[in-house]
């Protein structure tokens, strides 16, 4: 089956990735654990506050999962939404599942919930690191319409592994935010090619922020998640120092670049404009030896 991950809602992603009938939802819709803030603002609140959490199995391995629904307020993190994700990760510290899978699709903090949302995102970051410290790999998948931005962009980079499709986007400030703050001359958020050259899946893969890039299909995401669980987590001091070294090298090498194209040229791509048109297999073959970071995997 080649069902699109991008086009699916969060509940369909859970059903599509996990083993059939293995998902058990925590704080289900019927429990109505909804946002206390939205009602005060006279806005309807979703039954699940835009994130579905629970446990299930993938390729027979017991995992915990949280899936953000981008269609509800752009997947934004409110107080309850954030607490649900934190709860999943803290439970993982206690129960040691094979992994925690975070299907992220979010613009970041839900502005209607202001400080409560900001605190929630920082708690998610801490909880991701706690789970990893307890030996539970945290795997992030990004491949939805709204991308993964704001504080959750930072949170995703605290995870063990990031899996993206070309369609996925990962960043801190989203394109519209950059344009609003810096002006359209600096960044035109409606220039889709520019947006994908700076925050899209292929660029994130080449920079090494995304570890695995897959075509937009449920089967491809499922396969990548399973492989990532088996790869485990390198949480050693050496791995962290290596990462720091890569980041400082990156600033030195690419600090002056204005566009993804400039970076790709410096990486040795003879024709950077051809990258956008490559399918996933062509791209992976061509990217051999032309990434800022070659993925180091634990044996």
């Amino acid at each position: 089956m080649t069902r699109s991950y991008y086009e699916s809602i969060a509940r369909a992603r859970i059903a599509g990735l996990l083993d059939a009938d293995s998902f058990h939802e925590w704080l289900s819709a019927a429990d109505r654990v909804t946002s206390p803030h939205l009602a005060i603002l006279e806005q309807p609140a979703a039954f699940d506050d835009g994130v579905i959490i629970g446990q299930g199995s993938i390729a027979g391995k017991q995992i915990f999962i949280a899936a953000q629904e981008g269609g509800f307020m752009g997947g934004a993190v409110g107080e309850v939404h954030g607490a649900k994700i934190v709860g999943v990760l803290e439970r993982a510290v206690r129960d040691h599942p094979a992994a925690v899978l975070l299907l992220l699709e979010t613009g970041g903090v839900r502005l209607q919930e202001a400080n409560a949302g900001l605190i929630a995102v920082s708690e998610v970051m801490r909880a991701i690191l706690s789970a990893r410290a307890a030996g539970v790999p945290v795997i992030v998948a990004i491949g939805g319409q709204y991308g993964c931005f704001g504080g959750m962009g930072i949170a995703s980079r605290c995870a063990t592994t990031i899996i993206m499709s070309e369609e996925g986007r990962l960043g801190l400030s989203g394109p519209e935010v950059i344009e609003t703050v810096r002006g359209v001359e600096e960044y035109d958020s409606r220039d889709r090619a520019l947006v994908w050259r700076t925050v899209g899946g292929k660029h994130r893969y080449l920079l090494g922020e995304c570890d695995v890039i897959v075509p937009d299909s449920m089967a491809a995401f499922q396969h990548a998640v399973t492989a990532s669980i088996n790869n485990g987590d390198d949480w050693s001091l050496e791995a962290l120092e290596r990462e720091h070294q890569l980041l400082s090298d990156r600033v030195k090498r690419f600090g002056e670049c204005k566009d993804g194209r400039d970076i790709w040229r410096k990486m040795g791509w003879p024709d950077p404009d051809a990258i956008a048109m490559m399918d996933n297999d062509e791209f992976l073959a061509a990217a051999q030896g032309r990434r800022a970071k070659q993925t180091v995997k634990v044996p």
Partner: peptide, 18 residues
């Protein structure tokens, strides 16, 4: 069995039947 369909997004709605 209790079911939810749809998403509370612009021009859309979510429906729960219990």
């Amino acid at each position: 069995v209790t079911s939810v369909v749809g998403v509370l997004g612009s021009g859309n709605l979510e429906v729960m039947v219990e």
